[in-house]
Design a protein around this nucleic acid. Structure first.
Lengths: 231, 231
DNA sequence: TCAAAAGTGTTTGGGTTACACCCATGG
DNA sequence: CCATGGGTGTAACCCAAACACTTTTGA
């Protein structure tokens, strides 16, 4: 299966078309599974790398996609059956021989973050299976297809940096949440414990959340104030 | 001049080629001119946006470029006649109707930093002229072609963030330099003054530079220790 | 009354800013 | 001897880590 899937005919006149690379979008979909950061992998049903695990992704369709973000969302719908919030472009990687389907392949990598329960376990097109995998592990796993371990590492670093700066994935949480829940979520993403007191001071210095007057969450123990994203 | 420059023929079989976008690389080349950050702009000699100023850039050539970085360097050679150090990928932007030459255009934007004297003032292919322009200004100038003001803003922010973190463009400086020269350079990039004492403390806490024993720069006043990049 | 989680206050320390001050040299 | 830039020291301050403590509930 080494046949080129994209046009590569050579050009003649100076203003004639140059052959363009094979352009794809790859998704590093993160979530919190069992209290730590996980990445969604698909087992490939087609060549190349049949049977191996890889990030879900798809070909950019200039007939369907208005822009790169739209392409990422379409591919998420097709492959995962869900929309993906907290979307962020990570990087573009492109070179000769990256992908045996084409002489030159360019991928735009995106990071997203979804509640893992929101995923239909049914795999979409071209995938045998979907599975969550510990993110730190996957980032170092040489058995993954293409250069995807590096992309996963990139997604982890970008995400941890955002959390450090309190740019938090509120779409990932319920609309109303307690500060405890928020802290547990951040700790899972960072892979380390946070101090309750300084975490809260930072939150209200920068006004990233606001208390919802009257709303409390009652449970087994002392009731907790509910918060929502500011503005 | 609305004729498509790239192949857009539709596909038939499911595994047949999809039409691919028009892929370019744009360069935000920065330098320090008159003590403040400047960006290199070219006046376009061809449609679209003839006569308007834009970032230098060029089409990705999968027959010539081994990877994206190589493409950026080739385009720098062709357009500017020089190699570009401190190269960093900024972002990919792509959408329908971004560029009248094609129905769907994708650009990978790169930032570089060169000593401005190293540029041959002769403009390369497809450019009428090359000129340095205050970066902060250009980032807000609606008269620039395409979405280039946003790319310039992106380049400025990425660069200032790197300098804040003491990831410094040593290729931009002479191999041996005084701490005063280094500080002036950083101040120009940041667009604000730095405190000499804390700047130096930060430098040697993180061991980013090392003194060259015996080497001193003598001038009008007290001689200064020369330094080089660490490692 | 105890466990568990909510919520608050206080101390400490690292790192940066701001600023004052000496040093060495050519003119 | 002074203007100028090189180089050093110190106090103030900001922020966050660490940790101790009180509060409130269901069981």
């Amino acid at each position: 299966m080494n046949r080129s899937l994209i046009k590569t005919s050579s050009t003649t006149s100076p203003s004639a078309p140059y052959p363009m690379p094979f352009v794809r979008v790859e998704l590093a979909v993160l979530s919190i599974v069992d209290g730590s950061l996980a990445v969604l992998l698909g087992r490939r049903a087609q060549a190349p790398y049949v049977g191996q695990w890889a990030l879900p992704g798809g070909v950019l369709r200039i007939d369907l996609d208005d822009d790169l973000n739209a392409a990422a969302q379409r591919i998420a719908r097709e492959r995962l059956g869900t929309t993906v919030p907290f979307l962020r472009q990570l990087t573009a990687v492109g070179s000769r021989h990256r992908d045996p389907r084409a002489p030159w392949a360019l991928s735009i990598a995106y990071r997203a973050m979804v509640p893992f329960e929101s995923l239909t376990p049914a795999a979409g097109k071209r995938l045998e299976a979907l599975a969550w995998r510990a993110a730190d592990e996957a980032a170092c796993d040489g058995a993954l297809a293409f250069d995807h371990p590096a992309l996963i590492m990139n997604a982890i670093n970008a995400t941890r940096r955002e959390v450090d700066e309190l740019l938090l994935p509120f779409e990932f949480l319920p609309e109303h949440f307690t500060l405890g829940e928020l802290q547990v979520c951040c700790e899972a993403m960072l892979g380390r414990r946070l101090d309750k007191s300084s975490f809260r001071r930072r939150l209200d210095d920068r006004k990233v959340v606001e208390a919802i007057p009257g709303e409390m969450k009652t449970g087994a123990f002392r009731p907790a104030q509910l918060f929502r994203k500011s503005q």
